[in-house]
């Protein structure tokens, strides 16, 4: 049942031009960054050779792509997530799902999985790009693994925020704006805080992602991102339930 809902969302995404435009934009920016980083790598290659432990191709070229991907996804996810529930509300098609033998949890998780699968496709495309580096050398697969894991967890958190804001309103644009504001706010949280020990920084998503880009797997970060995702999904479920109860 969950996958029927997810399949429906995935199909809806692929049948809208917006999703293709976002995917294309993402891919072009990634490719651009890849080319510029490759160029920079080639100019400093001779100096790198003289170092005792020179940073590898993965660290210099691939890691920045993943860093940039996270920032671009902050802008892309709201555009893709805004329609999930808000538009169903506006078109009064939500009744179709609620009248079907589905629980609110199944509806929300199904929609989340649909969006998440689409976003993971973009991660797969980035990985393909990274794989192209195999043509000229070797890659640090361990680092590539943590980068992918980090991005996958981060995207789940982004998507959950998107689903939540889409559940709050019947206006997709409002949902997109709120999602963008929240994600940017959480991303930039560490810029505004002078005190590095401030508890607010716990929430800064960029910090949670940073360790992955250094090739580190911190179980604290994994748990934080998973809990973050779960909290927003539960809030979305609660919100749909209260639609039914309140009035």
């Amino acid at each position: 049942m969950i996958f029927t809902v997810a399949g429906k969302e995935l199909r809806a995404l692929f049948s809208s031009p917006l999703a293709w435009v976002v995917l294309a934009f993402l891919q072009i920016s990634m490719a651009w960054i890849l080319v510029t980083r490759l160029d920079a790598y080639l100019t400093v290659q001779t100096q790198l050779m003289q170092m005792d432990t020179p940073p590898g191709v993965t660290e210099i070229i691939i890691a920045p792509i993943f860093g940039a991907a996270a920032v671009i996804l902050i802008m892309a996810v709201p555009l893709l997530s805004m329609r999930l529930i808000a538009e169903e509300r506006r078109n009064q098609t939500m009744t179709f799902l609620i009248s079907a033998p589905l629980s609110m949890t199944q509806i929300v998780i199904g929609k989340f999985i649909g969006l998440y699968s689409f976003l993971m496709l973009s991660v797969a495309l980035i990985l393909l790009m990274a794989a192209s580096m195999y043509l000229g050398g070797r890659l640090d697969l361990g680092l590539l693994g943590t980068l992918s894991l980090g991005l996958a967890l981060l995207i789940a958190a982004f998507a959950a925020v998107g689903v939540f804001f889409s559940s709050l309103t019947a206006q997709p644009v409002v949902a997109a704006t709120a999602t963008l504001a929240t994600l940017l706010g959480l991303w930039l949280l560490n810029m505004s805080q002078a005190n590095p020990d401030s508890p607010f920084l716990m929430l800064a998503l960029i910090r949670r992602y940073e360790s992955f880009t250094k090739g580190m797997i911190d179980s604290g970060d994994i748990i934080f991102l998973l809990v973050f995702t779960a909290v927003f999904l539960i809030l979305a479920i609660r919100r749909l339930d209260s639609d039914r109860l309140g009035g």
Binding site: R11, A12, S15, S16, N91, Q92, T93, M94, T95, F96, S99
Partner: peptide, 12 residues
């Protein structure tokens, strides 16, 4: 159930 406004996905 058929609600007052038929719940139809226009792009299917």
């Amino acid at each position: 159930y058929l609600p007052e406004t038929p719940p139809l996905y226009r792009d299917l």
